[in-house]
Simulated assay, not measured.
Amino acid sequence: MRQLAFASTGPVCLPHRPAFPGGQGGAVRFQRLTAKSGASHTVAEKLQRVIPNSLQRVECLNRMDAPNKGVHTVREQGEDRMAPRQAPTIRQRRFGAELRRLREAAGLSAPRAAELLGTDRTTISNVEAGRFGISEQRLRRLASIYECDDPELVDALAAMTGGRKAGWWDEYRGKVPPDFLDVAEVEFHACSLRTLQTAHIPGIFQTGEHARALFDLFIPALPRLEVELRIAQRLSRHIVITRERPATYGGLIHEAALRMQVGGRQPARAQLEHLLKESERDNVTLRVIPFSSGGFPMAGDSILYASADSPHLDTVQVDSPTGAVFFDSPTQLSNFRRRLDAVEQVALNAQKSRDAILEIIRNV
């Protein structure tokens, strides 16, 4: 702390401002001081008399955007820039990863890219890590610097810039595991979804009773409140199928998952009847992998392939014992598409799959 003396109020402590990429200090909030005489003055008014004009040109804000759930922003040269994020979401990390690929494809180092953009290396690194957001204007400048000739990709990236709007899943932040929220965000922003399930009913189509039976199997047991929160969050994911512009859904489900009576006969029957009804939607195609198909790629895995407006921004999520794992490199995406295509070759068509589900219902 440094002190400046003012006649009417005595010493005033000035907080040190943390360094901010780009050379500016962090946002500073000036609080009012009340003199003994009862007159009220702001520190900002007093500082204008002692701070050089060169420093007064820096506009510092500490503005809260309601949709951003507490994200502070700093305005610089007519542009809003997000302050460092403590925990970037999967979509924010995905945005940064694609910018890094574009920079590397252009053969530019981070310092050189920063120089051409008129900023510093730290800013480029933080943007690529998802810790900073950038405006659409800067995104398009970067795309030009990186000589990206894919307008579809640039437009898709531009749609991811600016302040982040809160999604329905943010209501559950801090209440359910973070990867639950990441999966919901990936699904919500996808234009189409492909899944492979060999042991479970797809989460988007699970009934509340089925989901509760699954969560009750956890060891050690989950607190009852957390179970109910997880169920509510899982049921809410169904919105991607029913919204005004729904995602198209292609699901591959092994016969083993259909025959497993999770929660008992009645819950299992209700789950299959719900699944059968969902398969009749125009944007939903469910295909059963019968026992008779034998082996197939990714047997035993649980896969989600989320397609974006640009194929470069597709994302794959795979379940693991420790949580969701995400893949987004071009080679990985290509391999997952090929594997899913191969599994489709051994699956029943849509009508035969519905017949198979109906037959299993009769025998439950």
Rank of each mutant, 00 (worst) to 15 (best):
G163T: 10
R173M: 02
H200Y: 14
C191F: 01
L214C: 05
D150I: 07
E185W: 00
D216F: 02
A211H: 00
R138E: 14
L181R: 08
F205E: 10
R230W: 00
F205K: 00
G167D: 14
G208M: 14
E147N: 15
H210D: 05
H189I: 04
E209L: 12
A166G: 10
G163Q: 13
M160N: 12
R212W: 07
L214F: 03
H189S: 13
R230E: 01
F218M: 14
G208R: 04
A143S: 15
D179F: 06
P177Y: 09
E226A: 11
L153S: 13
G162W: 04
L181C: 05
W168G: 09
L196F: 11
S144Y: 09
A221D: 12
F180S: 00
G203L: 09
L157C: 05
L139W: 03
A166Y: 03
P223G: 06
D170S: 00
Q197D: 15
P223R: 00
D149K: 12
L196K: 08
H189G: 05
Q233W: 03
A159C: 02
A159R: 10
R212H: 08
Y172E: 03
M160F: 02
P202Q: 12
L142H: 09
A159K: 05
T207W: 08
G163E: 14
Q137A: 15
H200I: 09
I219R: 15
H238T: 08
D170E: 13
D150P: 11
A232S: 07
W169A: 00
S144W: 09
I145S: 05
A232C: 10
W168N: 01
S192W: 09
P178R: 05
L229Y: 02
E171P: 06
A211V: 04
H210A: 03
D216N: 15
C191D: 09
K175V: 14
D182H: 13
G203K: 04
K165C: 12
D150K: 05
R230P: 01
